[in-house]
Design a protein around this nucleic acid. Structure first.
Length: 495
RNA sequence: GGCGGCGUACCCAAGUGGUUAAGGGAGAGGUCUGCAAAACCUCGAUGCAGCGGUUCGAAUCCGCUCGCCGCCUCCA
C-alpha cells in the first residue's frame, strides 16, 4: 500500500511522489497573528499534525515548515486601533498561537519562519519578477502582472477572462489589470516599513510564502497545504510568483482541507461566529477535541456542535479507560512513549518502509486496517473505526483473562492513537485529570466521597443494602459513580 | 453568473458498481453484580433527499427536481 492523497492541482487522488527518495518537504500556511485562534484553525493545525505524524510512521523523513505572518494590513490596522506597535500586537498573538498549538499537542515544525525576518529573500524575488517582465513598479508599489503569467488559474481552475468578468476587487488606477496583485506596498505615514529598490514599504501578503517555502524546502518542493479558502487567490498567486521568478515548477502536490461550520455557516472571524481554541479547551480535554476534529474526513465540512464534542469526550474517555485497564493488567511496563516505534522505517520510498514489525496477526489486522484507511486519502474517520475495533478486542481479552497479545496491542494501539493525537499521556493520568475537572466543576470534596464510601462499605458488610444503595444513589445524583471491585470500591465522575 | 461541494439510522460519520451499508454517541435486551457501574454479547437503516434512467446488479454512474454550503474580496 502506498499513501495516496487528493491533489488540488490535478484534481484527483494520486500517490505522493517526492523530489528526493524517502524525503518529504511540507509547507503549511500557518497563522496571521492579529487575533486569537479558533476551532477552524484548530482543524488546520490538527490535520497537518496528523499528516506529519503519519508520514513519519510510514517511514518518510519529513521536513515540516509552517510560517507565521507577522506583518499585514490587519495586524497594522488592529495595532493602530489599540494604539500599540504592530510588532507588539504580533508578538502578543504569536504567544497565544504557540499556546494553542501546544495545548492541542501538535508536533513542532522543523522551521517556523516569520515574514519580517525574510525581507531580503522577498525583495530578491520581486527583483527577479521585474527582470522577467512579470512585475512592474508603480508609485512605490510593485504589482504582479497576472496576464503575463500563462499558467495563472491552474490551481483554482479559473480562467482569466472569467475572473475579470466576476472581479470584485476595487479598481486601482495604478494597476494595469484589476487582477494584478501587490508584491510590494509603499508605506503610508506611521506604517511599519523596510527599505527596498522601489522605496520604503512592506511585502504583499502572498509573497512571504513564496519566498520562505522555497528558501527552506527548495524549488520545486513536495507538499503545500492550507484551508480551502487559500486556493484562490493566495496559493494561485504563490504559484505565479515562485514559478515566474525561478521559471520552474513550484509545488508537486497541493492539499486543502474544508472548513469548520457552525449552524450551516462557515466559522470565521468576519462572521463573528467562532469559538476560540482556548475557550473550548476550558471545558474539554484537548484529546477529545482532536478526536472530534479527525472524526470527519478532512475534505468534508465539519459541523461544530455541542453534541459532537460531548460524543467525542465520551469516546475519548472510553479509550483511556480501556488503556488504563490494560496498563493495570500488564503492570507499569515500559515507560510511556519509550521503546522503538513500530513504524520507524529506514526511509527509502516511504511506501515500503513499514517493517512487518513483530506483531501477532491478531494485532496486525487492526494496524493494517488503520494504515489502509490513512493511505486512502488520509481517511481518519475510517482509521478511527479500526481503533475502536481494537479497543473492543482489548476489552474482550481483558475480560477473558487472555494475556498473550495484550502487550503487542498496547504498543500498537498507543502508537496508532498517537497519530491522531490521542493517548499522548498515560491513560491513568487522563482519567485522573478528568476526575479533577468534573470535581472542581461540581464542587464536591473527594474526602466526603471517601467518607461516604467507607460508610457504605460498612453497611454492605452488615448486609444493610438499603443504606448502601441510598449512598450510591446520592452520589450518583451528584455525578459520582461507584464501582465495586475485588480490591474494594472505587469511584469515577460522569461526563 | 463562473467554479467546487454536500444531503446515509435518534445524533455524528465511513462507504463512490457486486457477499450481512464501518465506527462513535444515545437507546433496548442479556451476561457479570447483593443491587449497580464498567466491560462484553445481542438488537437496531430491506434502505442511503425525491423522481426517472443505464446495468445481470447502484447509496455508489447519468438526467431532472428539492434543500443546503463554500470559493470568485481578508480568511484555516
Amino acid at each position: 500500500m502506498t499513501l495516496k492523497m487528493h491533489n488540488t492541482l490535478s484534481g484527483v487522488i494520486e500517490p505522493l511522489t517526492t523530489t528526493r527518495d524517502g524525503e518529504v518537504g511540507l509547507y503549511v500556511c500557518g497563522a496571521t497573528v492579529y487575533d486569537r485562534c479558533h476551532v477552524g484553525h484548530a482543524r488546520s493545525f490538527v490535520f497537518f499534525d496528523m499528516l506529519v505524524r503519519y508520514l513519519r510512521l510510514a517511514g518518510w523523513r519529513v521536513r515540516f515548515v509552517r510560517n507565521i505572518t507577522d506583518v499585514d494590513d490587519k495586524i497594522i490596522r488592529r495595532a493602530s486601533d489599540e494604539g500599540i506597535a504592530a510588532k507588539a500586537l504580533a508578538e502578543r498573538y504569536i504567544e497565544t498561537f504557540r499556546r494553542d498549538v501546544a495545548a492541542l499537542g501538535c508536533v513542532a515544525p522543523d522551521a517556523e519562519p516569520r515574514a519580517t525576518e525574510h525581507l531580503p529573500e522577498m525583495i530578491a524575488m520581486i527583483g527577479a519578477l521585474v527582470a522577467n517582465g512579470l512585475a512592474y513598479p508603480a508609485d512605490g508599489d510593485v504589482y504582479f502582472a497576472v496576464g503575463a503569467f500563462p499558467g495563472y488559474g491552474k490551481l483554482s481552475k479559473r480562467k482569466l477572462d472569467e475572473l475579470q468578468a466576476g472581479a470584485r476587487v476595487e479598481v486601482d488606477e495604478r494597476k494595469r489589470d484589476a487582477l494584478d496583485f501587490a508584491l510590494w506596498k509603499a508605506a503610508k505615514p506611521g506604517e511599519p516599513f523596510w527599505e527596498s529598490p522601489w522605496g520604503p514599504g512592506r511585502p504583499g501578503w502572498h509573497l512571504e510564502c513564496s519566498a520562505m517555502s522555497v528558501k527552506y524546502l527548495g524549488q520545486p518542493f513536495d507538499l503545500h497545504g492550507g484551508g480551502e479558502d487559500l486556493i484562490f487567490p493566495h496559493h494561485e498567486n504563490e504559484i505565479a510568483q515562485s514559478e515566474g521568478a525561478a521559471r520552474r515548477p513550484f509545488v508537486r502536490h497541493w492539499l486543502h482541507h474544508a472548513f469548520v461550520r457552525i449552524n450551516d455557516e462557515k466559522m470565521s472571524k468576519s462572521l463573528g461566529n467562532f469559538f476560540t481554541i482556548e475557550e473550548i479547551l476550558k471545558n474539554l480535554p484537548s484529546e477529545a477535541l482532536r478526536l472530534f476534529l479527525v472524526g470527519t474526513h478532512y475534505r468534508s465540512p465539519l459541523d461544530f456542535a455541542e453534541q459532537g464534542l460531548a460524543d467525542a469526550a465520551r469516546a475519548c474517555a472510553r479509550i483511556h479507560e480501556t488503556m488504563a485497564r490494560l496498563d493495570e493488567a500488564l503492570g507499569a511496563g515500559p515507560a510511556f512513549g519509550a521503546g522503538p516505534a513500530l513504524g520507524a522505517g529506514p526511509g527509502g520510498s516511504g511506501a515500503d518502509a513499514r517493517p512487518a514489525g513483530e506483531l501477532p496477526v491478531a494485532v496486525r489486522r487492526y494496524r493494517d486496517e488503520f494504515t489502509a484507511a490513512m493511505d486512502d486519502d488520509l481517511n481518519s474517520p475510517r482509521a478511527l473505526g479500526a481503533l475502536f475495533d481494537e479497543i473492543r478486542e482489548i476489552n474482550r481479552l481483558l475480560d477473558a483473562g487472555e494475556r498473550e497479545a495484550l502487550a503487542a496491542h498496547r504498543r500498537n494501539f498507543t502508537e496508532l492513537a498517537g497519530i491522531l493525537g490521542v493517548l499522548r499521556s498515560p491513560a491513568r493520568r487522563y482519567v485522573e485529570e478528568e476526575k479533577g475537572r468534573h470535581l472542581s466543576a461540581s464542587g464536591i470534596d473527594p474526602a466526603e466521597i471517601e467518607r461516604l464510601i467507607a460508610e457504605r462499605t460498612a453497611a454492605r458488610k452488615a448486609r444493610d443494602f438499603r443504606r448502601a444503595d441510598e449512598i450510591r444513589d446520592q452520589l450518583l445524583a451528584r455525578g459520582i459513580a461507584l464501582k465495586d471491585g475485588a480490591e474494594g470500591t472505587s469511584w469515577s465522575t460522569l461526563s
